[in-house]
Nucleic acid binder design. Structure first.
Lengths: 163, 163
DNA sequence: TAAGATTGAATACTCAATCTTA
DNA sequence: TAAGATTGAGTATTCAATCTTA
């Protein structure tokens, strides 16, 4: 990654911080892509739905009354609303969630978790948690975990403000 | 994230390591999605192509003779071959890369960087490097960067072996 | 028989436009 | 006028099948 066009700047010299940061950024993207693929593969091998479905089911299970407004869910998942509309269509077709009218704002809808959806999430978690353990948890110590948590929390909070 | 079904296991109690790991894993995914979106948005605002194009151009510029076999490029980018075929089609249509026959294996092809492609990568880097600085570099110290580098390298090397 | 690359068909995603209600 | 949600059209991605050469 990174240009080395500023070689004139020999004062910064041996440890070019900008470059090491770009290297780490690239590794961040690579690790994400690899682990996502491997996790998806593990789910598919167990004949289970993709991670995007898990994210919906998990978000709903966390939410009060196990339901969320569609635009909130889209924001939480960092996907576009039109994308979420169709994602919910698919989950609803499988009976994992259902749409409910919003009484206080008749423009809006809720996506609500069904019992089937709850069961499916648990089934997926049996597999997904193993993937996280294998591909991620196994390679990071408690102290390193703290560093990741601190940095990522900071990055996310700034990014959400920009988003 | 994470089930809390093993509450019987009160000995591990207060700091449940498994759970904190799942939380960090989720933050990892969230940060990646947010920063990817923000970077894409910055590029689009400058009327520049998406990150996937940058990745192709960058990989080729690093490679010996600024060219790579298509299957190597697909592996490096962690995308499927059919996906890469069409990605290269688009870049080729814009004159940023060109396909070259492989003399030693007549089944195969190279993707080679053109001068236009090289220039475009530099133009993209002007914008992309700013995004990395704003959204990532600014929030991580040198020491934290070292931790990220160590952990991610480990994760990637294990994941590639599984992939 | 298998590997490198491409293709077709089906699915998923994005962007802009639309419809309804605030 | 704007927000919540959906739709249509275009683009991108996936999966399986195909073609060529090793």
């Amino acid at each position: 990654m990174g240009d080395r066009t500023n070689i004139a700047n020999t004062e910064i010299s041996n440890t070019n911080l900008g470059d090491s940061c770009n290297t780490v950024w690239k590794k961040f993207l690579t690790a994400n892509a690899l682990l996502f693929e491997l996790s998806e593969r593990d789910l598919a091998a167990a004949k289970l739905p993709p991670l995007a479905w898990y994210d919906v089911l998990w978000a709903l299970e966390q939410a009060p009354e196990q339901r969320m407004r569609l635009h909130e869910l889209a924001d939480a998942m960092i996907i576009q609303r039109s994308n979420l509309t169709r994602l919910i269509d698919r989950l609803e077709a499988q009976g994992l969630v259902c749409r409910r009218n919003c009484p206080s704002d008749r423009r809006g809808s809720y996506a609500a978790l069904t019992d089937t959806g709850k069961a499916k999430r648990q089934e997926m978690w049996q597999v997904y948690s193993q993937s996280i353990a294998k591909y991620f948890a196994q390679h990071i110590s408690d102290q390193e975990l703290e560093v990741f948590d601190r940095v990522l929390s900071q990055v996310i909070s700034h990014a959400k403000a920009e988003y």
